[in-house]
Design a protein around this nucleic acid. Sequence first.
DNA 1: TTTCTCACA
DNA 2: TGTGAGAA
Length: 132
Amino acid sequence: MKIGDLARETGVSRRLLRYYEEQGLLRPRRLPNGYREYTEADVAGVRHIRAMLAAGLPTAVIARLLDCVHDDDGERMVPTGCPGMVTDLRHEQQRIAAEIDRLRTSQQALDTMLTSALRQRDPHSTPASNRS
DNA sequence: TTTCTCACA
DNA sequence: TGTGAGAA
């Protein structure tokens, strides 16, 4: 199928499908006219890519992990196990945990600034309620 | 319709 | 990570 067909079937824009190829996530073969030719397997492939992106994985990692996953009769993405896969996932999990810590620190700093700014404006107001 | 590239958020 | 525009 051509890029427009895959875009329709997956709901992912043609532009984005080209971007995924550029990142090494998809490897369509080329027709003599230079057009990309995709297979049915690429439909599942795009679903897997979307799922991994949603999990916060960067494209470089997804490129490695994509071959370590297969499709469970129609719907689910199932890990088949690859050397290094668990290591990669653990590493990403740690990276995300660190990122959350960093964001928490930012949030705390902003809360402090906001509280003090509000006190300047109205010294009698109660502290800002923090959603944390 | 599709390709690629440059620029940009 | 993802998009828009322009030219072929």
